[in-house]
Design a protein around this nucleic acid. Structure first.
Lengths: 341, 341
DNA sequence: TTGTAGGCGTTATCAG
DNA sequence: CTGATAACGCCTACAA
């Protein structure tokens, strides 16, 4: 029982440390933050005293004085999905190294989205930088955000003002479609996605790519083969049900997420159908359950996306000057061939 | 194009508003926070001026002055798992209503855990309250945290100092075991869990309950039937592989999470085995994929857990006095009977 | 290398 | 009901 840890039950302030170490608060501040111009011996002594008093700078105070909050905000449309959970995990890991905190916001529907961009200054000033996933921004909105001094990295969306991370949706989707075409399929369906009218950009890109792939293969476009699946298992199930009810059902289906693909497969199984014999299925993501279903899918490295995004914001925060041309990172994808297609 | 929104490209301060409204900063502060003792007319005018200047209080400044950070920290052992993602989503939804921010920390291994409790003051003072999931705390550690003034709600763990949320692990597990026993099984295996030596309390409780269930049924305890699965799909797969290699393999298996159960099922399928004919399987959680695998499992309402935890911390933060007896909430579970057992 | 002191933007106390 | 005015705890020129 040492008991020397706590300081009078009230947190020690920088002044307490200064007093105890026999130096000025300025020196303590510099010493503890590893700034230059501090004698090694002084630094060490201050360090020790601080440790002994278990001193830790008051975040609010230093934020106020320094003008930086010391945290990064992450905005996602949903939390409880494989993709976002994984991405956030990647971000957290990076931020932790820099001792900066992660503020998490969910913008799950259009109403929240509007409020979010409307109250921009409020959110922006709670953090030094933002990572926004798939949040649609009108030209005016992103312009305003930028002029509000926001440091933002967008994922799944692009705007002229901010650096962004995207998959090469075109070639990713084309890989899936081409694979299906190469397997001899001529009637290919697609399960698209959106969530609560948030106007995701990604499914639009994928649909366009899908269509161009179909046309490139000399196959006609059939709107009835395009069904929304809401990026959920249930949605995938229903979409597949609709597709199979068609007079002339597809022999292959591309789902824009593994969840939807798995839902589709489940519907098939329940009706005694199997992939790829009855209908071939390709998913997107390569999440944990893809392997369980032996699902052929387009893999993306979500962890890497999170890590990269985090590094990007940190870069944005460090540098004072905004680069003329915001960086655009394209993340790689690859087709994982398994049993369903 | 109104253009009246931004204020000189620099955020307006409370003083700017006061000046523009012709009142003192004190009045502005009171008016905007809906405190009493402000003339309705005054309040309205201030409100308008503030809106027009799109003024929003500086979080750091008010935190410093008020002594409250305005955010709640959530500490989880992993982010990218169904359970935690879902729980955090529930928490976020509640906090959003109170306009308080969510700080997310992952404490994924023992080293991080140690650091976390060691630097307690640092974390504690970044937020007004914490929600800790499954983080093991020694008596001394929780004592210190409490005396550091931490307002904590624990989930999956209990300590004398803090309110907590737990499942009734005993009866939940017993429901699973009893179901298996009732189905005539006499040799029942269990796939346990832990993650990176974090010393989860939950799997220990479940194991104890499992054992007592076995004994209550008059069946002998067989240590070789207890296998760790690390709460992952792969872990479940391997555990089942081990169990099946036994000279006298179990005819039924209880897995402490659906992930592990599904992994186990996958291993069986690959070896031409099916549930429940070859081996009956019961999982725990009832997550999204449980239904896909027609998995009999113990359901818990994770969203509700998150919501309740959030309300608890908020309560802790509001009230100044700590209640003598920390609240203990027991969340309900139920056995969902499907096809695998 | 170190110290002094002004300021960061709010809140809260205490008069008026 | 409203207005001064100390804190709040730290950072950062500027001096020394």
């Amino acid at each position: 029982m040492t008991g020397q840890g706590d300081w009078l039950s009230k947190p020690a302030t920088i002044e307490d440390v200064a007093l105890a170490a026999g130096v000025s608060v300025a020196t303590v501040s510099r010493a503890l933050r590893n700034l230059p111009n501090v004698a090694p011996s002084t630094r060490e002594r201050v360090q020790q005293v601080a440790d002994q008093m278990s001193y830790v700078a008051n975040r609010a105070a230093s934020s106020l004085a320094a003008g930086r909050s010391g945290n990064i905000a992450v905005v996602v449309p949903v939390l409880d999905s494989w993709y976002f959970a994984k991405a956030v995990a990647g971000i957290e890991a990076v931020l932790k190294e820099s001792n900066i905190d992660l503020l998490l916001y969910a913008v799950t529907n259009e109403a929240e989205r509007r409020r979010f961009v409307a109250d921009r200054s409020e959110w922006i000033r709670r953090s030094d930088g933002l990572i926004m996933f798939d949040i649609r921004l009108s030209a005016q909105e992103s312009e305003r955000l930028a002029s509000s001094g926001a440091r933002i990295v967008t994922i799944g969306t692009e705007s002229p003002e901010f650096p962004s991370l995207m998959l090469d949706e075109i070639s990713a989707t084309r890989a899936a479609v081409d694979h299906l075409v190469a397997s001899g399929h001529t009637r290919i369906g697609v399960i698209t996605g959106d969530a609560d009218g948030l106007g995701f950009r990604v499914p639009i890109l994928r649909l366009t790519a899908f269509q161009s792939g179909i046309e490139a293969a000399g196959l006609g476009l059939h709107p009835e083969l395009e069904r929304p699946g809401g990026f959920s298992i249930d949605g995938g199930r229903e979409a597949m049900a609709e597709l199979l009810k068609l007079e002339n059902p597809p022999t292959a289906v591309f789902a824009m997420s593994d969840e939807m693909a798995v839902g589709a497969l489940d519907h098939m199984r329940r009706n005694g159908l199997t992939a790829p014999d009855d209908v071939a299925v390709v998913g997107f993501d390569d999440n944990d359950i893809a392997e369980l279903f032996d699902l052929t899918t387009v893999r993306q490295d979500v962890d890497h996306i999170g890590v990269t995004a985090a590094r990007l914001v940190l870069g944005l925060v460090e540098q004072t000057s905004t680069p003329s041309e915001p960086e655009r990172v394209i993340c790689p994808t690859s087709l994982v061939r398994r049993g369903t297609a």
